[in-house]
Design a protein around this nucleic acid. Structure first.
Length: 472
RNA sequence: GCCAGGGUAGCUCAGUGGUAGAGCACAAGAUUCAUAUCCUUGCGGUCGAGAGUCCGAUUCUCUCCCCUGGUACCA
């Protein structure tokens, strides 16, 4: 049996999840369900990047102890997954003891390879924001936008650095050769373009003061904490036993695919393989990079106040309706505009009038004529498989909806309501076969709906409640 | 600034050196098994602007305009 290990990104848990997170979860779940259906043993991991300074700041603002704060928000991410009908086999918390040990082990391996050294970092530090800024990020007076009037201090601090520059050629080769495959192609080119400019060493630690004593302690240096990316990426390993359970780790690692958003590709395509190369560990096989949502044409942001809550949408339209919109309504690798108006349009056109209505009309015909379904159909439509293997979910679904349209047309041509006897039975059985084929192919995408249809179309067929009541 | 991608029907997008395509939306017709549904037909575009190559350009070349993304220790 083939193993297949995939992950979602490790998200900041400084705020509740929005539709963008939901999109990524659904995409990962489709891959997971498909791999399972074709017989792989699959593990899906997600997790929370709980060690970021942003969490500390957000917790302070909310007036909640930091651990309690990240626990609460991590739970919201897990709850969202459940509501989307997704099961994370592992949800690895960055603040867990096991993760700390695992990340320290990774650090020690990199250090033993001679790739970690101490160096002074100088930068412009804003006390109000508690972070460093590049000159380009400041206003004309050299002040930060959040705290105008206040001068930034030039702060120097000893940090640990990782010799990223050493791995430049190896990483270029990995990406070019697709040994680390990046989907889609244009993201791969972006990464190569970035590498071409030359890789510099990166800081991978912070002083306790700046880190507010939060985060993974650096081994053998009580004054420093790991910079979040070093340990956050390692969640992919710590969650499957790196540093705690060798048997489990050897079974699942390396990851077959990391599903991530475009904003963090550099960390996954460059930093992450470099850390692993340094530590002498296996590398993930591929990255699947999705785009971001805009909302009614605008960037989603807390300041604009247009952050869309996926839970509300699930309550309004149902899990599968939302899953369908994510998968069909936007190309899987591009940016998509989220609009509720569009969601409603797609719901009525494709789910109510298309799939739902087709199932209802065939079910009624079968009920009236005492038709039973005997066999089960497990045949993948070629275009659906093709779409899935390339992560082009919208194209896969399009193929299924072509089947739906063909079946509708066939019913109109055959006019079963005018037939009788043997001919009628034969026509209806053919329609039942088509419905089963459609719902089988639908399984990775709309699991609840698929189950409902397959249940309705096994044994004696009866008409039932509409799958997707038409919205007015 | 530099690098990459894009500007095609009201919307989302596909596509080609030879009189422009799909789905949705909209309109009409026909049908009744069905969720006022399905089916058929129709409406709808100087294919970002200009110039060049060619018998012929939306498709190739150049210039310009606009949009999106990337341009690292901030995430």
């Amino acid at each position: 049996m083939n193993k297949f290990y995939l992950t979602t990104a490790i998200h900041y848990v400084n705020a509740p999840p929005h539709v963008g997170h939901a999109l990524e979860f659904v995409q990962a779940d489709v891959i997971k369900r498909y791999r399972k259906l074709i017989g792989d043993e699959v593990l899906l991991l997600s997790g929370g990047d709980e060690n970021a300074l942003k969490n500390v700041q957000a917790a302070e603002q909310a007036g909640i102890p930091i651990q309690e704060f990240v626990d609460q928000n991590s739970a919201l991410f897990q709850n969202l997954a459940e509501r989307l009908n997704i099961k994370f086999d592992v949800f690895q918390k960055g603040s867990s003891e096991q993760h700390y040990k695992s990340s320290q082990k990774l650090w020690e391996l990199c250090a033993a390879a001679g790739d970690i050294y101490k160096k002074e970092y100088r930068g412009l530090y804003c006390v109000g924001c508690e972070q460093f800024y590049e000159p380009s990020e400041l206003n004309e007076k050299g002040e930060c936008f959040e705290h105008p009037g206040g001068k930034l201090e030039e702060v120097a601090e000893e940090n640990y650095f990782f010799k990223l520059s050493k791995y430049e050629n190896q990483i270029r080769e990995l990406v070019e050769s697709d040994k680390l495959k990046i989907v889609p192609e244009f993201r791969k080119n972006e990464v190569l373009g970035f590498i071409k400019q030359g890789l510099k060493d990166i800081s991978i630690s912070r002083s306790n003061v700046r880190a507010k004593n939060w985060g993974v302690p650096v081994p053998n240096d009580p004054e420093q904490r790991m910079y979040v990316w070093f340990d956050a990426l390692n969640i992919y390993q710590s969650g499957v036993g790196f540093g705690s359970n060798d048997k489990q780790y050897n079974k699942w690692w390396p990851a077959d695919v990391h599903v991530i958003g475009k904003g963090i590709i550099r960390f996954h395509a460059i930093y992450w393989p470099a850390f692993l190369l340094s530590a002498g560990l296996k590398l993930p096989k591929s990255l699947f990079v999705h785009g971001y949502f805009t909302v009614d044409g605008q960037k989603m942001s807390k300041t604009i106040g247009n952050v869309v809550d996926p839970i509300e949408l699930i309550e309004k339209y149902g899990t599968d309706a939302l899953r369908y919109y994510f998968l069909r309504g936007i190309p899987s690798t591009g940016d998509g505009d989220f609009s509720e108006r569009r969601l409603r349009e797609v719901y009525n056109a494709d789910l109510a009038n298309g799939l739902g209505n087709l199932v209802a009309r065939v079910a009624k015909l079968c009920e009236q004529n005492n038709i039973s379904a005997a066999e089960t159909y497990k045949v993948w439509c070629a275009d659906v498989e093709k779409g899935l293997s390339e992560y082009k979910f919208n194209e896969a679904l399009q193929a299924i909806w072509t089947l739906i349209a063909e079946t509708d047309k066939k019913i109109n041509e055959d006019t079963p309501w005018r037939l009788e006897g043997e001919k009628l039975a034969k026509t209806l059985k053919d329609l039942v076969r088509r419905i089963c084929e459609i719902s089988y192919n639908l399984r990775p995408f709309l699991p609840q709906t698929s189950d409902k249809i397959l249940k309705q179309f096994s044994g004696k067929i009866k008409s039932g409640e509409p799958l997707f009541p038409r919205l007015i």
